[in-house]
Amino acid sequence: MRKSLIPLALSGLAMTLTPALAGSGRTGILEQLQAEAGQAFSAERGKALFMARHKGGKPKTPSCTTCHSKSPLNAGRTRAGKRIAPMAVSKTSDRYSDPKKVAKWFRRNCRSVLGRECTPLEKGDFITFMMSR
């Protein structure tokens, strides 16, 4: 009886901790970016970055919204047709919590849209905007 309670308790613990861990992963990523950027992040600047039409990237992907849709609350679609979960943390709770994933997608997508890597400030602004939604 007791033994069977242990996995139950552990899984209960894991369930309560998962969102918290995702949150702590996000905090760590933001702290790291903050240290590199050296100035406060702005959701407004992040929104502008997300909505703007950029030059210098690939002609078929001039904007984040090309694939992610005009609203962070809506799902997007890759150019190959796959669904992309909404970017807003309120809609997709585990967004921006895995440093490897965050690094991968910023690297690829900034190159595609802007034709260069994003700065720590831009990344921080972007995540701050998505957390405000």
């Binding site: 690939k58 078929k60 150019r79 490897k100 991968k104 690297r107 690829r108 997508n109 190159r111 595609s112």
Partner: peptide, 8 residues
């Protein structure tokens, strides 16, 4: 195929 799909 025209997309940056680089991986570690």
């Amino acid at each position: 195929f025209g997309e940056d799909a680089s991986l570690d």
